[in-house]
């Protein structure tokens, strides 16, 4: 998938994460987390895996995590990516690219 315009998903509430994607060349991740020392590595892995699954190769992505669980992080990344290319309105591939 191609990131066409900047898009945001999520909030800064506790146990959530705010994910912002923007068009970019290659993958570049900016990560801030309230549980950085213990889960920073795993959050990074989750974000990159999710992007890979969605076939996103070029993207600047920023994640501000407030202690979200893995499932939340995945959902926020998926949502931001779908919004960025206008695919979040309908026909979301539940069980396909989105799981």
């Amino acid at each position: 998938m191609r990131i066409e315009r900047p898009a945001v998903a999520g909030t800064l509430e506790s146990s959530d994460a705010m994910v912002t994607v923007e068009p970019g060349e290659g993958l570049s991740l900016e990560l801030a987390s309230s549980v950085m020392n213990t889960y920073g590595r795993q959050i990074k892995e989750t974000v990159l895996e999710t992007l890979k699954r969605l076939g996103v190769e070029d993207c600047f992505i920023s994640v501000v995590d407030k202690g979200a669980l893995d499932c939340t992080i995945k959902a926020r990344v998926e949502c931001a990516v779908f919004r960025s290319c206008g695919l979040s309105e309908k026909d979301i591939p539940w069980g396909g690219e989105v799981r």
Binding site: N37, Y39, R41, Q42, L69, D70
Partner: peptide, 10 residues
């Protein structure tokens, strides 16, 4: 099982 196994602090 809910939050994942944390990395050891350095």
């Amino acid at each position: 099982s809910i939050v994942g196994r944390p990395d050891e602090l350095q």
